[in-house]
Design a binder for these strands. Structure first.
Lengths: 366, 366
DNA sequence: TCTTAGCACTCGAAAGTTTTAAGTGCTAAA
DNA sequence: TTTAGCACTTAAAACTTTCGAGTGCTAAGA
């Protein structure tokens, strides 16, 4: 259903007024403050129509209207004009992402932090999913008297490391042997594949050299699976201070979201990559999300998902501002990773998809 | 002021009843449920006395009594009998800490996680303070085509690492040179000392070999200071579900504590080490803490502070249970670190201070 | 035909009132 | 020294009233 211009202007006005006040918006307010050239009565009629079409809702008969999820959806997709970031904002973002640290977890945290600061909502981020990575290199590094650092470089550029201690009977030359052996055996192999069959690949043969290999193999194996992957969040307090969260129920839902994380993880892993994904309220199946909007930007390199950044906020959100922020940070991060990585296929540099201006979504109109 | 036995029993009963219900406790409740052998009227008189002495408080004249901070303090120090952990609980703790991972950050997170699960409060933990550490070893590890991992082993056994990329013009043999040079120059030196004067130690000389050393030196230097040290927390939702947190004000304070973290950091860094520290309500100067109790156990090795674990909960807390839990986990962790570290001074094993049964505190009676 | 002034109506929120019950402190008797 | 008895206090809950924002409908005007 395409709306005529007047309905669009009224929907826009209602959304912007509601965004500012968090109170249901009445016809008189629109008529006096938004200069549309119609009387409250006319606007009243149009608002009744917009409600019938499902774009507005009325909490009760003697209240004003609030935007519905589909109202917001329509607004985002076809009505609003995105603000452009100020030079200063861009500068802040560029500055923070412009350093030599190439540890993806650090980068994603930095990005997340900027997002919550620039938007005043709660930023969310998740690290790489290693399921389908392959091993590019393994390094064993002796540290001090009795510790061994295990480092795995994956084909998506992510580095995993852990430290074990051994009981002092692992001679330097054995480390060398293990190192070579592990690289020889595991290079190019899939993480999952190794994880499920590590013993058949490794243990028997190395056993002969030293039983001290066991904890090493165990820990190496642990590095291959993403147990306890956590969603990184910043600025939770921002949300908690919003009027929406004063409602006991909404607060409970929010706390559930941030503590359980399962649904959030799923959402962060799904969606299109290299583009903005916007999930408004009930567009998410999870009941806890019904009063929130989640915006994500998935990072990909060499066709491997390496993490997602984004934000969670109330449905009443300054989309005009927030979406460009996520876009800019997401693209900057993507550039940074591509430009800085110099990964095995030699595809260095950007591939020019940053002009893409269309929102992705994975739900249908309701 | 020493209390007679009857007052102690009544204070104990009030605290236990209040712990269970979070409601002000009346004289009749105590008389009927706690079998002290006195009528409500007698208990009423004693409660009035206890209030005068500052151990109980009355929200309003027609309500029962609640324990004050000094009431809790007295209870913890001289009245309650600590529960001993069940065999099962001990087993759970031992199991989780019994693995070959020697990365302190991981250990402290595991410990923190157990605490929140066993107590149903919010566990808190902070990693090592590196201020006065010295460098024991530096390793540069080449990864893939263009990345370099910098690893620093400190004299407290803590390992710091980061990854930088370089522009592909750093030949393998130079890495070796840098590695040796850095170890030669910096081994045994104090972190702070290096941080403040890194240029005078390093840059000039290495400059001649390659200007590519610069990002390496910058990042190495970053590793030496604890910027952005974060307090690790687990089970925040546990607290948010308590009736105390239903009060807007208390909720705000809690959110402030977990978001700002500054005060919490200070608290976690202070206190006695190798022993329990209990901070009840106003005993803390920070206003946000006034409705909470914080219990900490500071970890130390070779006279260096290497982190603190603990918990934050409401003043109304099952101290009899919680204190032994923190003690047990704290001691187990301490053992684990000492036993597993095999640090440079050869002081392997435990030094037998785990029988210590006395609570430390750093505030005076009020 | 479209717009709008006018007006009766609805209903939640705020303010005010009454009722209830938990718990106290004091007095006087055991 | 203890306790039964009782008047008193007060927060919380339940109920009632008032207020006002905003609506939808009707009929008149452009």
């Amino acid at each position: 259903m395409l709306l005529d211009e007047r309905k669009k202007r009224i929907l826009e006005a209602v959304i912007e007024e509601y965004n500012a006040t968090a109170e249901p918006v009445g016809s008189t307010k629109i008529a006096t403050d938004y200069d549309l050239g119609f009387s409250p009565a006319t606007i009243r009629n149009e608002m009744a129509n917009l409600e019938e079409l499902g774009y507005l809702e009325q909490p009760h008969v003697s209240a004003g209207r609030i935007p519905s999820s589909s109202g917001y959806r329509l607004y985002i997709d076809t009505i609003m004009k995105e603000k452009t970031l100020t030079a200063k904002e861009k500068q802040v973002i560029d500055e923070i992402l412009k350093n030599d640290i190439i540890k993806f977890e650090t980068l994603i945290k930095e990005a997340s932090n900027i997002i919550s600061r620039l938007t005043n909502y709660t930023s969310i981020a998740i690290g790489p999913q290693m399921d389908n990575c392959t091993v590019e290199e393994i390094k064993l590094v002796k540290l001090g008297q009795d510790r061994l650092m295990i480092v795995i470089l994956a084909d998506n550029g992510i580095i995993k490391e852990s430290i074990i201690k051994y009981d002092g009977t692992l001679p330097e030359e054995n480390i060398e042997i293990f190192n070579n052996y592990l690289n020889h055996k595991l290079k190019g192999m899939n993480f999952n594949q190794i994880y499920e069959n590590i013993n058949s690949y490794v243990e028997d043969e190395l056993y002969n050299i030293s039983t001290n290999i066991i904890p090493l193999v165990v820990e190496l194996n642990n590095l291959l699976i993403d147990k306890n992957v956590e969603v990184y969040m910043d600025g939770t307090k921002n949300l908690l201070e919003l009027p929406e969260l004063k409602q006991e129920n909404t607060l409970k839902n929010f706390l559930n979201i941030i503590e359980t994380q399962d649904a959030l993880k799923e959402l962060l892993r799904s969606g299109y990559d290299g583009n903005i994904n916007v999930y408004i309220g009930q567009e998410n199946v999870f009941d806890d999300f019904k009063d929130f909007t989640i915006i994500t930007y998935k990072q990909k390199i060499n066709d491997k998902e390496i993490g997602t950044i984004g934000l969670i906020g109330p449905k009443r959100m300054d989309y005009k501002k927030v979406i460009p922020v996520i876009k800019y940070v997401g693209e900057a991060l993507q550039e940074k990773i591509k430009g800085g990585g110099n990964f095995d296929d030699g595809n260095k540099g950007n591939n020019g998809d940053s002009g893409n201006n269309q929102e992705a979504r994975d739900t249908s109109d309701e």
